[in-house]
Amino acid sequence: MTHHIPFDHMHNFMTDVFIGIGVPEEEARTCADVLIESDKRGIDSHGIGRLKPIYYDRIVHQKIQQATTEFEVVRDHLATAVVDGHHGMGMVIAKRCMEMAIEKAKKHGLGMVVARNSTHYGIAGYYPLMATAQDMIGISGTNARPSIAPTFGVENMLGTNPLVFGFPTDEPFDFVNDYATSIIQRGKIEQYAREGRDCPEGLIVGRDGKSKTDSKQILDDLVKGEAALAPIGGIGEETGGYKGYGFATVTEVLSAALQQGAFLKQLIDKDSSGNRKPYELGHYFMAIDIQCFCAPADFRKTAGDIMRALRESEKAPGAERIYTCGEKEYLAGIERANTGVPVNEALQNDIVTMRNELGLDYQFDFE
């Protein structure tokens, strides 16, 4: 049975879990901030559901990630910088990188910071929204362990590689297109598996070129290289799969070439001897100061007018409404403010396991 946990209680719990596994307190709060923002926005694939498998287990059990973050600026030149995260906390690395990009944009109009040797940084949209809050355009992306097959291929080569833009608007929410360049991302499949649901047909391709739907089997097959995600547009060229393939490649290059980081199969978490190793992810962050082009209020008004025109355009028969990027997440935040974070039985077990292993003093209403 699914229970709902208030945001403050969940945020405090996640913060204390991060502290309990060695993350410094301020950095632990940053990590919890990113995860709870995902839960608030209804992005259930990247919130509390990722705390144990993506962070806790990799630090405590697999020992392929550092709880403390050594943030090293290896190259700094006016509007640009290159950072080495030394396998620390991806959310900490990413937030500091975007802060640097924003500060550089304030001085030079544009700022771009890239990172190497990082780890999973949560929802990509968190970082462009840092820029929009300061009247800037924000852009971010990251590579990831191989999941997507190139068009006409069946081998997982590219990560889910989001390419995310944030624009400030004059509406209660800013535009942010926070999604993977595959039709479905691994986190969503993990969510299906927790809920005992199959994946829809046509999203995953096996080595035989046929679609796969068993969520738990897909997760195993992705690790073994026996399955791959289809890029946005689908399998083959007829429905435009080459477009998603191209966008995924753009993010792969921007996440690896500028910072001279790992890419494609180098991002697998095992070395040539089969031993576990860090994922060595790369990220990129851009901030563009709008006031260098026009008054920020004018930009916000124009961007808002575009969104409103799109939503007010003619709807398909039977459709209730048209949405723009960021709107559904904004509405989810309003709804969840009253209900909290939904936690199914599998997540309840993860929460209890982490609490008990760390000896934390927390009680939840599902117990």
Rank of each mutant, 00 (worst) to 15 (best):
A303L: 09
A79R: 04
G206D: 04
N356W: 05
I54Q: 15
A332L: 09
F263M: 14
F293D: 05
K210F: 11
T30R: 11
C292Y: 14
M130L: 10
D174F: 01
N349P: 03
F7I: 10
T68P: 06
E201Y: 12
G141K: 05
P231C: 03
S211C: 08
L310W: 13
G196N: 07
A248I: 06
F173T: 01
N117Y: 02
E329R: 13
K95Q: 14
E238A: 15
V352K: 15
D221H: 09
G42A: 06
G125R: 02
T80K: 02
Q191C: 07
D84L: 09
F285D: 09
F366K: 06
G225C: 07
E345M: 10
A228L: 00
C325E: 12
G47W: 00
I139A: 08
L360V: 05
A67W: 02
V154I: 14
G90L: 05
L129H: 09
G244D: 00
A316M: 15
A337T: 14
K301I: 08
G240F: 04
I21Q: 00
D208E: 03
L331W: 13
H61W: 11
P128E: 08
A94G: 03
G202L: 02
A230S: 13
F165T: 05
V352H: 14
A124S: 12
N156Y: 00
E27W: 02
H9K: 15
G318I: 04
D198C: 01
T169R: 01
L110E: 11
R321E: 08
Q266H: 11
G88W: 00
Y362T: 11
I5S: 01
F13K: 12
S273M: 13
D220P: 07
V343G: 05
E201L: 08
T239Y: 14
E70G: 09
I54A: 12
G274T: 06
H11D: 13
D289H: 03
